[in-house]
Structures are given as structure tokens and as C-alpha cells.
């Protein structure tokens, strides 16, 4: 670094202060949710610094006794399965769009975005009526398929952009060695585009994991997901803030290690998309 010591200036201090302020903003709601999770009902409205030791594990037993663990399991299964399925059929499609010959690539990319953008309020009723006729209401299969609406366009789009970075020569060499196209995809292209593929899977999982609206409409008691089950703590005469906060924390915790592990892949893969 050509800079000397005296360059640690007021401006840099201001920069560091800004970063710390942003970090505080990012963490405050999380810390607050943790605080609420351990507060007894009687002290919810007492500032934590006035009675910092009044803590309870009651909310854990409330949560354990509720439908929430079951809903969490449903969320994991449906988000996981829809991600796997979307990857299974979306990545080959992304590959075909990245390397195949087509004059309609722009249309395809627009269409994918469009599907990603369609307002769920509008098509959830037709989807509901469709499901009614084929018996998919309140089934895992139905919810997984609905999540494909959300995840598949993203998977195709995102794997397309990352696999577009793989050099054509690599693919052609592999094909000339006698591999089939599918073998080429699994043996050469996917490993070469690994960061992008991992990032795609993580983003797809998060989208399905996040969903509230689809689950609200097409699940019933058997397949209710965690985001919908949280709303059950808002009952008449009482909003159970402790359980809500704890449920939010529980819903967040499993995905934190994933995102911390995966964020560098996301950056790498998005790098592919934005630098070109």
C-alpha cells in the first residue's frame, strides 16, 4: 500500500462508523427477536435493560407443543424437494439455452423473468381450482409443484448465466471425445460452473422457504408450512410475541450457516452475470 500512516483520517473514521451503523441496523431486529424469545409474557413490555435477568424458556415449550415443529418439517421437505426438482429439470434447460442454438434467447429470458414476476394473487385462484380438480390440495406434491412456479424460472435463468461463462472449447473437446451431451453437462459443465450452480440452488431454496402466500392458499392441516403456522400465534385477545419471535428465530437459524457458506458462491456467480 502506497498510503502512509497519517492517512487514517477523519474520513476513514467516518467510513468505519458508517459500516458499524449499518451493521447495527442489520443486527438490531435479529437481536430483538432473540430477546423477545426469552422474555416471559409478564415482562414483554418492560425494557430489557430494566430487568435483564427476567428470562424464561416457556416459549420453547409453547412452540414444541404447537403445530410449529410439524410445519417446519413440511417447510423443509417442500422447499428442499422443489429445489432439487427445479435443479434437476432447470439446469439442463439452462445449459441448453446457454449453449444451444436458438434465435429466441431474448424472448426466453424475458419470459422467464415474466414468470418470476407474475403476481401470485392473480394466478393462485386458477391454481387452486386446477389443484382441486386433480386432488393436489393439501399435498406435498401440490406444494412442491407450486414452488416450482417460483423456483424453476430462477433456476433456468441463473444457471443459464453461469453456464454461459463455460468456454465452448471445453464442451466441444468433451463432445469430440465421444461423450453425450448429458455426460458433458454433468462431467464438465456443472463442475466448471460450480459456484453458480451452488448459488442457484441456495437462492431457489430460500425462495420456497420464504413463501407465505402459496402455502396460505393451497395447504390445509396436513402440509401447512412454517411461515403460515407462525400466524397461528396471533390469536384473538392475545398476540403471543414471545412465540412469534422464537418461531422467527427458529425459522431463520437453519438457513444462516447456509447463506454464510454460500454467499461467496453467490457473489462469484453473480459476478458472471454482471461483468460478462
Amino acid at each position: 500500500m502506497p498510503r502512509s500512516k497519517h492517512s487514517f483520517s477523519l474520513k476513514q473514521a467516518a467510513g468505519v462508523a458508517m459500516m458499524l451503523a449499518f451493521a447495527f441496523f442489520a443486527l438490531l431486529p435479529i437481536i430483538w427477536a432473540l430477546v423477545l424469545s426469552f422474555r416471559p409474557t409478564s415482562h414483554l413490555f418492560v425494557p430489557i435493560w430494566e430487568a435483564p435477568t427476567v428470562l424464561t424458556l416457556d416459549n420453547f415449550s409453547t412452540l414444541a407443543r404447537s403445530d410449529f415443529p410439524f410445519a417446519l418439517f413440511n417447510s423443509l421437505v417442500t422447499a428442499g424437494a422443489s429445489t432439487a426438482l427445479a435443479m434437476l429439470i432447470g439446469v439442463p434447460a439452462g445449459f441448453a439455452l446457454a449453449k444451444g442454438r436458438s434465435h429466441r434467447k431474448f424472448i426466453a429470458s424475458w419470459l422467464l423473468l415474466l414468470l418470476r414476476m407474475a403476481p401470485p394473487v392473480g394466478f393462485v385462484i386458477p391454481l387452486f381450482l386446477l389443484y382441486l380438480n386433480v386432488g393436489l390440495i393439501d399435498t406435498w406434491a401440490g406444494l412442491i409443484a407450486a414452488y416450482m412456479v417460483l423456483t424453476l424460472p430462477l433456476v433456468v435463468w441463473s444457471s443459464w448465466t453461469s453456464m454461459a461463462q463455460v468456454p465452448d472449447e471445453l464442451i466441444e473437446a468433451c463432445l469430440l471425445d465421444g461423450a453425450t451431451l448429458f455426460q458433458t453437462l454433468t462431467k464438465v459443465v456443472i463442475p466448471a460452473a460450480r459456484p453458480g450452480i451452488i448459488a442457484t440452488a441456495v437462492l431457489a431454496f430460500l425462495i420456497a422457504w420464504n413463501d407465505f402466500f402459496f402455502a396460505l392458499i393451497i395447504t390445509r392441516s396436513d402440509t401447512v408450512t412454517a411461515p403460515v403456522a407462525i400466524m397461528n400465534f396471533v390469536s384473538y385477545a392475545r398476540v403471543d410475541w414471545g412465540s412469534i419471535a422464537l418461531a422467527s428465530v427458529v425459522l431463520t437459524v437453519p438457513t444462516v450457516p447456509v447463506i454464510i457458506f454460500a454467499n461467496k458462491y453467490i457473489v462469484q456467480s453473480m459476478g458472471g452475470a454482471v461483468k460478462g
Binding site: A81, L85, G135, L136, W140, A141, V234, Y236, A237
Partner: peptide
């Protein structure tokens, strides 16, 4: 079972358990 073999599979029609009453209520005491 459904989830495992899912793909685009269509769910089996719900088999009603004899005399099990499904009650849907909203939360109040």
C-alpha cells in the same frame, strides 16, 4: 410416500378415515 416418488405425480384421492371429524377453528381461548 408421495413425496418420495413425486415428480409430477398426481396425489391419491384422500381416503377418509371412518368417523374422523375434521374441525377447523380460529384461535381464541
Amino acid at each position: 410416500t408421495l413425496g418420495a416418488g413425486l415428480a409430477m405425480s398426481v396425489a391419491l384421492p384422500t381416503v377418509a378415515v371412518a368417523d374422523e371429524i375434521n374441525v377447523v377453528l380460529f384461535a381464541m381461548p
